[in-house]
């Protein structure tokens, strides 16, 4: 594929998005299947209830270490979370790859525009959760 051809950008971005959603859906379905195979032994009804008194809420892992240990034991919720993280990462990957696609087209203005969007996006996703002012 010739990346200098303006049409190739549509193909690459389209494929990145499709790949992301297909992998994400497959991992979530795997998690649901695992949940179904275990649900004879566990009642999951209580997992649907939100409790403001226990922060973070609920019975599921939200830290990376908890996620990894959950994945090792094939925990259904950890699998679903992995699928959701892949889904959230899909538009971010799309922005990151666009920086290189605009560079291949030698469109410096849009390399800059997309790089700023990527920086703002990563700041918002990864940094703001640790700044107290954002926890209204």
């Amino acid at each position: 594929m010739n990346l200098r051809d303006p049409d190739s950008m549509n193909t690459v971005i389209g494929n990145v998005l499709r790949f992301g959603v297909v992998i994400s859906a497959a991992v979530v379905v795997l998690g649901l299947a695992r949940l179904a195979s275990l649900s004879g032994s566990a009642d999951t009804t209580s997992f649907l209830y939100y409790s403001a008194s226990s922060v973070p809420h609920g019975n599921f892992p939200i830290s990376l270490t908890a996620l990894i240990s959950g994945l090792r034991s094939f925990n259904p919720f950890s699998l679903i979370e992995l699928g959701v993280i892949i889904l959230i990462a899909t538009p971010v990957t799309r922005v990151a790859i666009s920086v290189f696609l605009f560079a291949a087209e030698k469109d410096d203005l849009y390399v800059l525009v997309t790089a700023i969007v990527l920086a703002l996006l990563l700041f918002s996703m990864l940094v703001t959760p640790f700044i107290p002012i954002f926890h209204a």
């Binding site: 973070p56 599921f60 679903i80 703001t128 926890h135």
Partner: peptide, 25 residues
Amino acid sequence: VTAAASAGIYYARGDVNPLIVAPVA
């Protein structure tokens, strides 16, 4: 992209409940 920008905060708060988001996704 707009939703991904705020996903980090909701995720860290524990608002993304796997049992609820699985059928949604």
